[in-house]
Nucleic acid binder design. Structure first.
Lengths: 195, 195
DNA sequence: CGAAAATTTGACATGACTCAACTGGAGTGG
DNA sequence: CCACTCCAGTTGAGTCATGTCAAATTTTCG
């Protein structure tokens, strides 16, 4: 379980973890299993746990006044899930997070996150780099949302994350792209005909 | 000049800066002035400087294959400007950054950023909180881009950043929102008639 | 096998884009 | 200080992409 996370951390830092550090990480991350459709977070609650996905598929989404769901983020193995605003500022979340497949997670609370930050240098480095990656990815997603057609958005997404097409149902991907499930269905038809 | 930045830093940290720290900041941030339309960064170049805006208005934008400009980010006093991907990973940028008004900036290079990070705790805290704010803002902008109508996107933006309406020309705001200048003009007309 | 969920498809509505023309104001140079 | 240019903003007409809704079909999974 934890080894998956140790391997993940290795990618961010040159120096390997000491066994003390590993013990500290084990002590501060709590394993959690979710069954399909179970919630990690519901809108209105405070996000107590930030989760590293060891195995499974998740989504974070909001629900607007008309009852429409909007997928904000999708997550697979080696990704993180949580509402950062709620987690750090202790405010009620606007988002839901649930499991689209059975999930194995490693969860951390705010206090324990701070503890690791102070005692495991590699942990801070990971977070810094993660923020960087996140901002870059967000910029790109934003650009494509603002500038590209539905078809281009879809093909770009699948090219970048081929796993998405297999792991997430189509209407979830449509929502993630900000297009209707009907339009995505038609887009895929046209793509199949063209090539 | 630097005092604006010291005041800004105060907002992030409980403990005030020592005079040593202030000296270090003075030494590592270089003042830079841009005239209107001057570039801080051009696509293809590596982003050498990350800039804190002491005074002025800036935009970061990309240009697509059809020659269309897409505004990714806008910046006013107390905001930061730079392409993080290019700055940290030393890769050529896809973006342009230019001044929409005469600007006073404080610029920092990658090495000097690291130096401050290692020697001024408040600097690291600022960056961490900034990342957090940025992610929250990005999430919201993304949600509105994917889910809301042109009219709602515009009113939300102006409500959140009233200064934008005064400081940025309308076609720039349109591009920032991902709508055409024509549509924004009509949206504003309709809003004026409704209320 | 059967119920529920996901996807596809058709008909129709509409919001937003494009293009081009026009207006008005700001800045510049003679 | 006027004439001229340039740029931003407005407006109209026509088009197109995408949304909506409802029904039919297929797939999934208990």
């Amino acid at each position: 379980m934890y080894n998956v996370y140790f391997d993940y951390l290795k990618k961010f830092s040159a120096t390997p973890l000491t066994s003390d550090e590993k013990a500290l990480i084990r002590r501060n991350f709590r394993p959690l299993r979710l069954r399909k459709k179970e919630y990690l977070l519901q809108a209105g609650d405070i996000c107590e746990n930030y989760a590293f996905i060891v195995k499974g598929a998740m989504r974070m989404y909001s629900v607007d006044d008309r009852g429409q769901e909007h997928v904000i983020r999708l997550g697979l193995e080696d990704w993180w899930m949580g509402d950062r605003e709620s987690f750090f500022n202790l405010v009620p979340s606007r988002y839901h997070i649930d499991a689209l497949e059975p999930c194995h997670l490693l969860c951390i609370t705010r206090e324990r996150d701070l503890e690791l930050l102070n005692n495991v240098p590699a942990y801070g480095i990971m977070k810094m780099k993660l923020d960087q990656q996140m901002e870059i990815a967000n910029n790109q997603r934003l650009t494509s949302a603002l500038a590209d057609s539905a078809a281009k958005r879809y093909t770009d997404l699948i090219q970048r994350y081929p796993a998405f097409a297999d792991r997430f149902p189509q209407h979830i991907i449509a929502s993630y792209l900000g297009i209707s499930k009907d339009t995505l269905s038609r887009v895929k038809l046209k793509l199949k005909q063209t090539q």
